[in-house]
Amino acid sequence: MTAHETSQTRIAPAWTQQLRALLRSQESVLLFITVIAVLILSTQTDKFLTVRNLLNQGRLMTEIGLIALPMTYIIVTGGIDLSVGSIAGLSAIMLGYGWYNLGLPLELAIVLALVIGAIAGFANGLFIILFRVPPLIMTLATLAFYRGLAEGIAQARSVRDYPEWFYALGQRETLGIPNQLYFLVIAAIITAIILSRTTFGRSLYAIGNNELAARFSGIPVRRNKLIIYTLSGFMSGFAGYVLVSRVSTTRSDMGSGWELDAIAAVVLGGTSIFGGSGSIVGTMIGLVLIQLLKNGLALTGVTGDATIVVIGSVLILSTLINSVIQRRVEGL
């Protein structure tokens, strides 16, 4: 889908050239790798390529996916957000704390969790634009700080026994499809359209390519950065809520390590870690590839630990393949 979009941005005189560009785009290379992986895995076990299993994998990857979408925006601008897992944990704790300890109605506690997430992301963005703290440092500090708040507020107590309706988002299906998957798909479509079709989205690429030039061309660099970090916080909070609904309990260590999973999906999806290029479609393929590898290998009897070895290798190899192809495309 975005393979089309990327190729359209170049002016292609003939359809053959267009096709060639399409085939060489990061997304199609990755899609090719994914198809190969699925084919190999499905010959190894017949439990893998079933609708039921695949939908279940969709359920499991939703939280990381929700975070990886705004992470793509941030990495496209040349930034990074390491605090997403901690924000998810903090939001989850605030949900449980608001409902159980503060006695808020559960609906209000959910809103509280989302608002806290957004505020946490807003604070990241504010420091980054006001004091020019490098995003890596800022979010490294808040990775510790937000997780610390979650631990301090929770005091190692977990909250469970939510009312039945609360689990609908995380554990039930509509029309046979897990409920949270709808949110992921809708969020992916909206973020993809914004990134590739709106002035705001294109400005993110401009910021990532040359921030100074972007500022001089009248792009509201600081405002746009503030927006994406706030969005990242909000989505992390939402992912925290989805997780609580899926696993039925609230603990302060929820979401630990999510930052690396989300970044892995984005980078695997072909977004340059230096900013300036990348797409939501790539991120979604990266996300799916990681989840399918995890699941497929587990089903074929590979232990979970060997799986992460494979994922790590795939991350490096696919980046290598892509960089070789892109270098050839650019004629370097």
Binding site: V133, M138, R147, G148, L149
Partner: peptide, 23 residues
């Protein structure tokens, strides 16, 4: 101070140090 606050305080101090350095 409850050890559960350790990380929050550490995170805040990291932030303060970094801001002081930038300033």
């Amino acid at each position: 101070i409850s050890p559960f606050w350790t990380r929050a305080i550490q995170g805040m101090l990291i932030l303060i140090t970094v801001l002081a350095d930038l300033y």
